Simulated assay, not measured.
Amino acid sequence: MHGVLLIPPGIRAELETRAGTGYPDETCGLLLGLNGEEFCQVVSQRPARNLNRERAADRFELDPLDYLAAEEAAAAAGIKVIGVWHTHPDHPARPSETDRQMAWPGWSYLILSVTAGGVVDIRSWRLADHDFYEEEVRHG
């Protein structure tokens, strides 16, 4: 099991900006990079449209066309889609039951807790045996 998600400071800054700009709605996207034995290395991120407009403040539905574009960009760069990022406006950076139901094993799920003042917490999770475990998020 992976225990560390490495995020370069520039990509973390991009995510924090997108989270703040999207507030009070949930924003989302994909993480592209490398899955190593000990860690996952984020190389880039791709924003995606949240198709859930009825409950945009507390749900996200990642646009499948944006997912396909991310897969194509990753393949062209010799990397893979390694996870999903999304925000929790005015809520903790912990996965919800809805997040668990939608999660895929083997991917990192980076959650940014955001308020009107900006991002207050960033945490990453992985699904194993129907439950999430937390990954350490490090600058990388």
Rank of each mutant, 00 (worst) to 15 (best):
Met1Gly: 14
Gly3Lys: 13
Gly10Arg: 13
Gly10Leu: 09
Gly10Pro: 10
Gly10Val: 06
Ile11Ser: 08
Arg12Pro: 02
Leu15Ala: 01
Glu16Lys: 12
Arg18Thr: 07
Thr21Pro: 01
Thr21Val: 12
Gly22Gln: 05
Gly22Ile: 02
Gly22His: 03
Tyr23Glu: 09
Cys28Val: 14
Cys28Arg: 01
Leu30Met: 12
Leu30Trp: 00
Leu31Tyr: 00
Gly33Met: 14
Asn35Arg: 14
Asn35Ser: 12
Gly36Glu: 08
Cys40Glu: 11
Cys40Ser: 13
Cys40Trp: 12
Gln41Trp: 04
Val43Phe: 01
Ser44Ala: 13
Arg46Leu: 03
Pro47Ile: 08
Pro47Ser: 08
Pro47Tyr: 00
Arg49Phe: 00
Leu51Glu: 09
Asn52Ile: 04
Arg53Asn: 02
Arg55His: 09
Ala56Pro: 02
Ala57Ile: 04
Arg59Asn: 03
Arg59Gly: 01
Arg59Thr: 11
Glu61Asp: 11
Leu62Asp: 02
Asp66Ala: 07
Asp66Ser: 06
Glu71Val: 15
Glu72Cys: 10
Ala73Pro: 03
Ala75Trp: 05
Gly78Asp: 14
Gly83Val: 11
Gly83Trp: 00
Val84Ser: 00
Val84Ile: 14
Trp85Ile: 02
Thr87Met: 11
His88Pro: 09
His88Cys: 12
Pro89Cys: 12
Asp90Asn: 15
His91Gly: 06
His91Ala: 14
Pro92Ser: 10
Pro92Ile: 05
Pro92His: 02
Arg94Asn: 06
Ser96Pro: 06
Thr98Asp: 10
Trp104Ala: 13
Pro105Val: 14
Ser108Ile: 05
Ser108Pro: 00
Tyr109Glu: 04
Ile111Met: 10
Leu112Val: 05
Gly117Ala: 14
Val119Gly: 05
Asp121Ser: 09
Asp121Met: 04
Arg123Trp: 07
Leu127Ile: 12
Ala128Lys: 11
Ala128His: 14
Phe132Tyr: 09
Tyr133Gly: 06
Glu134Arg: 15
Val137Phe: 12
Val137Thr: 15
His139Arg: 11
Gly140Val: 01
